[in-house]
Computed example of a mutant assay.
Amino acid sequence: MASNNYNIYKTDNGWAIKGQNNSRVSQYADTQQQAYGRTREIVGNLGGGEISIHGRNGQIRAKNTIPNGNDPRSIKG
């Protein structure tokens, strides 16, 4: 089964949207907010999954589960 997990990170071309197991970037956005919004659409259309948002330093600063994804927490929030 294909992974619906995506990463958002800063590159010289803007904020990259890349599937976890993909070899190439899916799209670029001018801002991190635009990239996150587009990634939510992509992952939602795929049936849910995880989004990892990386800061400018490359470290993961936030993770979000889109509905029907694999949320490790059993409570909402």
Score class of each variant (00 low, 15 high):
R38W: 06
P72G: 13
N13D: 13
N57H: 10
I8R: 08
Q32G: 04
Q34I: 08
N57L: 08
K63R: 13
R73Y: 15
A62V: 03
N45M: 11
P67A: 13
T39Y: 09
R61P: 00
L46I: 06
A29F: 01
R73V: 06
G44Q: 12
Q34H: 07
H54F: 10
D12N: 11
R38D: 08
Y36D: 04
T31F: 04
K76P: 07
T11A: 04
A62K: 12
Q59Y: 07
I17P: 04
N5D: 15
G44S: 12
I42D: 10
S52T: 14
E50P: 01
G14D: 10
I75E: 15
Y6L: 09
I8M: 02
K10T: 00
E41K: 11
A62G: 05
R56I: 05
I60Y: 02
A35T: 07
R38I: 06
N70R: 15
T65P: 01
A29T: 00
R73W: 12
Q59E: 05
I75A: 14
D30S: 14
R24C: 02
I66W: 10
G48T: 13
Y36I: 06
G44W: 08
D71R: 08
I53Q: 01
N64Q: 15
N5L: 09
L46G: 02
G58Y: 05
A16Q: 02
V43W: 07
I60T: 05
A35L: 11
K18I: 02
G69M: 13
A29R: 14
K18A: 03
N57C: 03
G44I: 11
E50D: 14
R38A: 10
N7S: 03
H54V: 11
D71F: 05
S26W: 07
S52P: 05
S3Q: 12
N13F: 00
T65I: 08
M1H: 12
I17S: 02
D30H: 09
V25S: 00
Q59S: 04
G48I: 03
K76T: 13
T39G: 06
Q32W: 07
W15T: 00
N21K: 02
N4V: 09
I51P: 02
I75W: 15
G47C: 14
G47I: 13
Q20S: 12
I66D: 00
S52V: 09
H54Y: 05
G47W: 03
G58C: 00
G49C: 01
Q32N: 07
I53T: 12
I75T: 15
S23R: 13
